[in-house]
Design a protein around this nucleic acid. Structure first.
Length: 195
DNA sequence: GGATTCGGACGCTCAACGGC
DNA sequence: CCGTTGAGCGTCCGAATCCC
């Protein structure tokens, strides 16, 4: 890109993220632990501006509401160069399927309880978001098949996937106690069918 | 070693859906 | 009508890479 930059001195409000590496990238791991949604990994909410300036947007860097923004000042951009980026107009008339019912824990149940889906907190193998600044990926929802003690699931193959990771057509989630330090209950992830 | 790039996680907005 | 849902698209963290 064209603009210069800054080391992010800002924020400081962040606790290190959940594992940065994709569990599906680590070939050695045939089993991966996912902390349950109830576990207490405290991370303060990210504070983002409503509209970043064009320079920060290009650099994928933190902006602030002031104009010129701090980053543009640091990088010696002129005030004229620090302008709000243009937002695209949202698509209208996009048809949506019927809504799924959700229980208190965020699990969705449909089709006689045979298929359970959850939109958040699931591992998302072989789904590759588009480049920075473009739309976040859609279709992050996994489909899982309920069994007695856990769930078998499938991740949809998405167009645009360029990870090259092997497809993981099936996984198994079972509630398990996590080791000390990971806190509370979690899910054991198994490649392939299991149990 | 500092600057730059960019993959991908995170978060907000708002139109469609669906219950009342 | 209005609350809920989730698609769409934005920001920006942080690792990788580049460059002096």
């Amino acid at each position: 890109m064209s603009s210069s930059d800054e080391k992010s001195t800002d924020g400081g409000d962040d606790i290190p993220d959940s594992p940065t590496s994709d569990p599906f990238q680590s070939s050695a791991a045939s089993v991966y632990m996912y902390p349950s949604p109830t576990s207490q990994t405290v991370r303060s909410k990210r504070n983002q501006v409503k509209n970043a300036c064009t320079n920060c947007q290009k650099a994928c860097k933190k902006c602030d509401p002031a104009r010129p923004c701090l980053r543009c000042i640091k990088c010696r951009f002129t005030p004229e160069e620090c302008v709000d980026s243009q937002r695209k107009e949202r698509k209208k008339g996009v048809k949506r399927g019927p809504y799924k019912k959700r229980d208190a824990k965020g699990w969705l149940i449909e089709y006689m309880g045979k298929i359970i889906t959850r939109s958040n907190g699931l591992p998302q193998p072989n789904i590759s978001p588009p480049p920075c600044g473009l739309a976040a990926f859609a279709g992050s929802m996994a489909v899982e098949y309920a069994t007695g003690t856990g769930f078998y699931g499938q991740f949809p193959l998405l167009p645009g996937d360029k990870t090259g990771y092997p497809h993981h057509p099936q996984f198994y989630l079972a509630p398990v106690p996590l080791s000390a330090g990971q806190g509370g209950e979690g899910f054991m992830y198994h490649h392939g069918s299991s149990q």
